[in-house]
């Protein structure tokens, strides 16, 4: 669910996900694609690491399955909630396995293989201490 204030905050880093608002369509991850090497990248690099050609922008979709996860229970960095979850997600559309935050409200429901979907919301702060938008994955199944 998109929380209030989402539209006014800056993303933790530009170009990682489609910008809000998400009233028309849900957020999607953005990355890169090299046509020659048929290789996806997240985040989007300037050049393909295999052939060094420029990489075009590509949507990486929003759904995947949890490959592994953990819940960090000690004092969190960057104003993140305590505890908070992180994991590797195997993205459905492109096959990349990417690191990401997991829904802080779902730390008790995490399991390997869990289908998850991208969300974007204010979560923690950036290096300057400003609240910011972060992408995270949330379980697709209801509670």
């Amino acid at each position: 669910m998109v929380k209030e204030g989402t539209n006014r905050l800056s993303p933790v880093e530009e170009g990682l996900f489609t910008p809000p608002p998400y009233t028309e369509s849900p957020p999607k991850l953005l990355g890169g694609y090299c046509r020659k090497c048929r290789q996806h990248y997240f985040p989007r690099p300037r050049h393909c690491r295999r052939c060094l050609d420029p990489v075009e922008g590509a949507s990486l979709g929003s759904e995947g399955k949890l490959y592994s996860f953990t819940v960090i229970r000690t004092r969190p960095p960057l104003g993140l909630p305590q505890p908070y979850g992180v994991g590797y997600v195997d993205l459905e559309e492109c096959g990349l396995r990417i690191f990401g935050l997991l829904d802080p409200g779902a730390v008790d429901r995490l399991r390997i293989g869990l289908p998850v979907r991208l969300a974007v919301a204010p979560l923690g702060h950036d290096a300057r201490g400003e609240r910011c938008l972060r992408p995270y994955f949330t379980p697709m199944e209801a509670d």
Binding site: V12, E13, T70, I72, T74, P76, P77, L78, L80, Y84, V86, F99, G100, L101, G124, D126, A127, R134, P135
Partner: peptide, 9 residues
Amino acid sequence: TKLGLVTPA
């Protein structure tokens, strides 16, 4: 790191 990765994790 910006997405919350710390070495123990």
